[in-house]
Write a protein that binds this DNA or RNA. Structure first.
Length: 307
DNA sequence: AACTTGTCCAACCGCAAGAAT
DNA sequence: TATTCTTGCGGTTGGACAAGT
């Protein structure tokens, strides 16, 4: 039997969400917590399908989401992570605490892709001595070049918040037309700032990485928990024991701990454990110049990206 | 001023994976 | 074990807006 549609097509509203709908959805999630999206439309009276509700929440209403331009550090981070992970936007976004996968994806498609295209076209084309590195080859290479990867990742993850654009509360000036709505959106975020419903223990990513998959109470909390939670994303595959293991292949097995009871307990208690990968990243305090590594990683990104 | 072209991004669609039954 | 349900993810689209002609 084929998979049924997520919702009835008739009587379902599509298109942009109105502030009123946002308020209804935000209020519902505030009261019941995210999850069981199937129940949201009938319970709230929203003429939206469950999928749309979930998407609206995760991409827009969820507290702590940063809107506006990407900083240089974020840009570099995306470049590096895209070279490492490919188009796994959710995984990449998990390293950018206040960005959604949709935002990262859009930013990649509208900015970085072109940037890379320009850079690659202006630089010397691949020659027989610099063959295009297939992803699998790159991953194998990375596996044997852990030190390079470690330093590059650490560098990429050292996002300087001071250099980042302001958060929602003091975000970049919005177009006048959107100002009113931005205000209501802001209000919703403020309203939800105290939201503290415990994240439901769900499968895979959610279980290992509550910060990335579920809202955390307040921006500060989300910020503090995000990095460790995000890093746990890399352990998801090993936890679930399935799926694409390319990330696992990139890293030594010792850096990919199982989701043991200790981790689970710490996560459940709201204390994000220092993940193995972060420990790994923090090991090297040599403080060597990172510019060359940046260039190497960018080179990898350029060669890895097929036009 | 009117039209065309380009950019940005919110939202939709379909697939896959995991959980539930 | 098989089937169904629910959610997450990545690719793509459509509309609003800006810039250019």
């Amino acid at each position: 039997m084929g998979r049924p549609p997520c919702c009835e097509k008739e009587g379902v509203k599509k298109g942009p969400w109105t502030p009123e709908e946002d308020m209804v959805l935000a209020s519902y999630v505030q009261e019941h917590g995210p999850g069981n999206w199937r129940a949201v439309p009938p319970r709230t009276g929203l003429l939206r399908c469950s999928k749309s509700c979930r998407l609206r929440w995760t991409n827009y209403l969820r507290p702590g989401i940063r809107r506006g331009g990407f900083s240089h550090h974020e840009e570099r981070l995306i470049l590096h992570l895209q070279a490492l992970l490919g188009n796994r936007w959710a995984a990449i976004a998990s390293y950018l605490p206040h960005r959604t996968d949709n935002d990262v994806k859009n930013f990649w498609n509208t900015h970085l892709k072109k940037k890379l295209a320009l850079t690659s076209s202006s630089s010397s084309p691949p020659t027989p001595t610099t063959p295009l590195v297939a992803r699998g080859q790159w991953e194998r290479k990375l596996q044997t070049d852990i030190d390079l990867a470690r330093r590059a990742l650490r560098d990429a993850l050292s996002v300087d918040d001071a250099a980042s654009p302001a958060m929602i509360s003091s975000g970049p000036p919005a177009p006048a037309a959107a100002a009113a709505y931005a205000l209501s959106e802001r209000n919703i975020s403020v309203m939800l700032s105290g939201w503290a419903a415990p994240p439901p223990a769900r499968k895979g990513l959610s279980a290992c990485n509550p910060a990335a998959a579920t809202p955390t109470p307040g921006g500060a909390a989300a910020e503090s928990a995000s990095t460790a939670g995000a890093s746990s994303e890399l352990t998801t595959d090993c936890c679930s024991g399935g799926g694409d293991s390319s990330v696992s292949n990139c890293l030594p097995s010792s850096m990919l701990p199982a989701c043991d009871d200790g981790d689970a307990t710490a996560t459940a208690a709201g204390v994000a454990p220092l993940s193995a990968i972060e420990s790994w990243l923090l090991l090297d305090d040599s403080g060597e110049p990172q510019l060359a590594l940046d260039e190497q990683l960018l080179d990898v990104a350029l060669r890895n990206y097929a036009f």
